[in-house]
Design a protein around this nucleic acid. Structure first.
Lengths: 228, 228
DNA sequence: GGAATGCTTCGACTACGATCGAAGTATGGA
DNA sequence: TCCATACTTCGATCGTAGTCGAAGCATTCC
């Protein structure tokens, strides 16, 4: 009853480099086939089969079959949140000093985390919505205010569709690089999709990096203002 | 650079029943000796030595020596938060149905999580402070307002001492049983200590259960009011 | 239907890690 | 100083889990 079995169970699932690699590969929020994941993790198909079965039965991945293809994705946002948390744990000053290269700066600036915006820009989005009172913490939950709903509709977000889905509208997700929350949930995902439609950002197919265009970054900064 | 090694590293640490048991035993926030942890986990001293060394070098536990005694505690609140998150993951409807007995209800009602109040009562505390504007979410951080500071001083919390420490004042900690945030940080810990001083609650030395006295629960409910 | 491709199953191998008996070191108290 | 206790080290054992070659099943396409 004390949660020990669950901790050990999930810890075991995570505590293998091949499986961890598969999970982080799926952090962008899309689904990949078993073969793609095998290649990404650098193992044979049979090894991948074994690992993926464990992750699926363990509740960390979902499976969708299309003919001979099996598409795996992270089971839910909670799994993504857990992975971001683990990435950040003990990611203290020493580890940060070992991070080099522009790619890591790009990841810090803006990256995709289960289809929503993370990194500095994700934090900015979250903070701006709170500062402008579009979002408030009500009864311990992030809630979209009336003015926030108006804002989102003007911005092109179909709130009716979002509310119709079972998925929570607003959730907080602890950001790995920034150690603060960014906006997750169906709203967070819808916003990132809208940024893409507006051509403000592009997603890198081979990584989680999100690249802002010059115009996009300016527009984003004008739309989502923070105190600093 | 993608966090995979950290995930696997920590997953490996957590993915052993003995170590998981040790970690959950330390969730109350106190320090225990190596021998106590060995007994709690049901292993010999030599096995415990090996595990504890791993947990310490892995950054999950801290060590303080007192003569021949070695006291281990969770390294920080982030570790406690991670453990609560893992306890809750996949703790879905099916698992809830298997939970039986008064003890589990007691854990849900009020329990200690790294020295702060968790469970229903922890949620109530958090929500009440937000509803009364004693706490607000400012720049993505939980912040104590001026009126909140006044309230705390009247309630008997030494805010000067709390601010003098390096520890964050307010932090959110995702609650295992309730799937919402309760108040962590040095303020959360100070509040629980005050509840004890006021004899509102008692801690069970052998578990994480916190028991409210009749008077204590009434006083708590009157002091920390929520919308429902 | 046959070939190609995606994925699975089987079985063997090997590395690894938890465990504890035995022995040792360090500390505290009488 | 001696004894008791807390903890550590060493080495051996054994169970487990990741891995892949070989073979097989399922799907798709020409």
């Amino acid at each position: 009853m004390d949660g020990t079995p669950n901790i050990a169970r999930i810890g075991t699932l995570l505590g293998d480099n091949t499986r961890a690699r598969m999970l982080t590969t799926l952090m962008h929020g899309k689904a990949l086939t078993a073969s793609e994941l095998a290649r990404e993790a650098g193992v044979t198909a049979q090894t991948a089969t074994s690992h993926l079965a464990k992750l699926q039965s363990g509740g960390l991945l979902t499976l969708r079959k299309q003919g001979r293809h099996k598409y795996f994705a992270l089971a839910n946002e909670e799994v993504a949140t857990l992975l971001e948390t683990l990435m950040g744990l003990s990611n203290d000053d020493r580890s940060l000093e070992t991070l080099t290269g522009p790619r890591d700066a790009a990841m810090r600036h803006a990256r995709v985390c289960y289809n929503h915006l993370a990194g500095n820009k994700g934090i900015q989005l979250h903070d701006s919505l709170l500062a402008s009172k579009a979002l408030v913490l009500s009864n311990g939950n992030l809630t979209l205010t009336d003015s926030g709903q108006s804002f989102m509709q003007e911005f092109g977000i179909d709130l009716q569709a979002l509310k119709a889905s079972r998925s929570p509208l607003c959730r907080e997700c602890l950001d790995w690089s920034e150690r603060r929350s960014h906006l997750a949930g169906s709203l967070g995902r819808a916003l990132l999709a809208q940024f893409e439609r507006l051509k403000w950002v592009k997603r890198d197919p081979g990584s989680r990096v999100i690249t802002f265009s010059t115009k996009g970054e300016r527009a984003f900064n004008q739309t989502f203002v923070t105190a600093e």
